[in-house]
Computed example of a mutant assay.
Amino acid sequence: MRTVPDATDATDATDPQDADGLTVGQVAARLGVTVRALHHWDEIGLARPSLRTAAGYRLYKAGDVERLHRIVVYRETGLGLERIRAVLDDTAEDATAALRAQRARVDEQIARLERLGTGLDRMIDAHERGLLLTAAQQAEIFGPDWNPRWPAEARARYGDTTQWRQFAERSAARGPEEWQAIADAVAALDRALAAAMDAGVDPGSPEAHRLVDRHREVFSAYFPLTRAMQVCLGRLYESDPGYRAHYDGVRPGLATWFRRCVDAAARAHGIDPDTATWE
């Protein structure tokens, strides 16, 4: 059992035999490692000092310091201590092969970090722009009536909301093909709503409820939509000139008919449309 505390090794205490080697503190400062690390490597037999003073202080000779330097270098490459021990002590261990294998692992980590960086760049861009599509791609996907300024306007209006963050996170993972599928689903829903209104489907009927549920499912491609939020959105479709022009352009009166369908579905689920709020 040690009779001298490890903390004493952290100082460059004066000792008559100090000239025979370097103290723990001196070696730690020279190699840029902690005294605690040197103690640990000594305790596990990875790098033991050749000398001890009469007072029990560790002293490292030139060969010890060289071994420690190699350990530090190998540690910086990411090798574990046991692998470093094998490289230093096992004559059958090929240091070059070990380093090549470690290099391959580092390359994999670099590639992973580059993918992560690309993903973060897209996430930042999506939070700032909304759609990561060119104006030409937007027109091709969303049709000639689409205004490429709308995403920027939405960012200015809703950029501080939870829904914008959810939308941006989903947008960052989407390319033109995914947006085309969403646009197709929205267009198909518009046609289904118009056909149902033409067929005289009454708000509150099972078929109208199914269409309201389909609307929530399609719209949730942008961000999760609760029934209360859908009520607010339905009223926006009816009151906002831009939204109303879209739906009434699909079929005159569609905006009001669909709002009534949403309100009836909300009541069926215990929600009062008159008090519903955006959650």
Rank of each mutant, 00 (worst) to 15 (best):
M1I: 03
D12A: 12
A13I: 07
P16H: 05
Q17N: 13
G21Q: 03
V24H: 08
V24L: 15
G25K: 09
V27P: 09
V27C: 09
A29E: 13
A29K: 15
R30F: 08
G32L: 05
G32R: 06
V33I: 13
R36H: 13
A37S: 14
A37T: 10
H39A: 14
W41F: 10
I44T: 14
G45S: 07
R48Q: 14
R48V: 09
A54V: 08
A55R: 13
A62N: 06
L68K: 07
V73W: 07
T77I: 04
I84P: 08
I84D: 04
T91N: 11
T91D: 15
A98F: 02
A98T: 11
L99F: 04
R100Q: 14
A101V: 06
Q102C: 05
D107Y: 00
E108R: 14
Q109A: 14
R112D: 15
R112C: 09
E114F: 00
E114R: 15
L116F: 05
G117Q: 13
R122N: 11
A126I: 02
R129G: 07
L133G: 04
A136M: 04
E140W: 01
F142N: 03
G143Y: 01
W146N: 10
N147I: 00
P148A: 01
A152V: 00
R155C: 06
R157G: 05
G159V: 03
G159I: 02
D160K: 10
D160I: 00
A168R: 03
R170A: 09
S171R: 01
A173L: 15
A173F: 02
W179C: 01
A181D: 13
D184R: 04
A187F: 00
R191L: 07
L193T: 01
M197P: 11
A199K: 12
V201E: 12
P203S: 00
G204R: 03
G204Q: 02
R210H: 12
L211W: 04
V212N: 05
V212W: 01
D213E: 14
H215A: 13
E217K: 07
V218G: 04
S220A: 11
A221Y: 04
A228D: 08
A228S: 15
Q230A: 08
Q230G: 03
Q230M: 08
L233G: 13
G234E: 01
R235G: 11
P241S: 09
G242Q: 05
H246R: 11
D248I: 01
D248N: 12
R251G: 10
L254F: 03
W257V: 03
W257Y: 07
F258T: 03
R260N: 15
V262C: 05
A264C: 09
R267M: 12
A268Q: 11
H269L: 06
H269E: 14
D272L: 02
P273E: 06
P273R: 05
D274Q: 14
T275W: 00
T275G: 10
E279S: 15
